[in-house]
């Protein structure tokens, strides 16, 4: 969707304020708890990664832009739980359960956490039967599309022409997975754009920007 999370190319947010590498990653205990609750609830299988991303990016723009990062995570967690009837808003207000628990696919155990930083095959890699439509070096145009649902195609590259730089094999397709319509894996590519193609004449010609894009985001450039 064309939400506030799709920030590439926006202006007016001011300078980036660097930190020191030794600075804490969390600035209050509640941020740690939100982080851990979001990871733990995701591992129950009550929703998938793409559903949780959509819950964050579909927050109303004025709200999204006025919240800190972990406030966004918390608001999305409340929304995901409420949508599934797992925790209602009045239960959070009360600080206790007012309804019996809902069903989640699995409950994680503390001793599983040691293995959580996965080994082996990355989580979204899948086989795709049909051959890749594009080859490295080929020119492609990003579709001009504006789905109201989840997509990982940023606005700033839509309709722009670039070159296939890498082929990453088959990966779960977020636009489908976020809707609960299955993983529908597709070929995933890196597409590289020249700066002026994205930002117009006068752009530093020494700039290029690459995005990762699923095959259905692309069409052959004519």
């Amino acid at each position: 969707m064309n939400g506030a999370a799709d920030m590439g190319g926006m202006m007016g947010f001011g300078p980036v304020v660097p930190d020191a590498e030794t600075d804490p990653l969390f600035h209050a205990e509640w941020e740690r708890r939100v982080f851990a609750m979001a990871i733990a609830m995701a591992r129950t299988g009550a929703w998938n990664l793409d559903m949780s991303r959509f819950a964050r990016e579909s927050l109303p723009p004025a709200q999204y832009l006025s919240m800190t990062y972990f406030e966004i995570w918390f608001a999305a967690l409340e929304k995901l739980l409420a949508e599934r009837g797992l925790v209602r808003a009045d239960e959070i207000a009360a600080g206790r359960a007012l309804l019996p628990p809902g069903r989640v696919p699995r409950i994680g155990q503390p001793d599983e956490v040691a293995g959580i930083l996965g080994k082996g095959k990355p989580g979204t890699v899948r086989d795709v039967e049909k051959p890749a439509r594009y080859v490295v070096g080929e020119r492609v145009r990003m579709r001009n599309m504006h789905p109201a649902t989840h997509t990982r195609l940023p606005r700033y590259v839509r309709g722009r022409t670039g070159v296939i730089e890498l082929n990453h094999g088959g990966h779960v397709f977020p636009d489908s997975n976020a809707l609960g319509k299955g993983e529908a894996p597709q070929w995933l590519y890196t597409v590289r754009f020249a700066g002026p193609e994205l930002w117009g004449a006068g752009t530093d010609p020494a700039l290029s920007v690459s995005v990762d894009a699923w095959e259905s985001y692309l069409e052959a450039a004519t």
Partner: peptide, 13 residues
């Protein structure tokens, strides 16, 4: 409050 509810409902340990 949310953490209490998640634990009480048995979703997370």
């Amino acid at each position: 409050a949310l953490e209490s509810v998640l634990v009480e409902k048995g979703y997370v340990h």
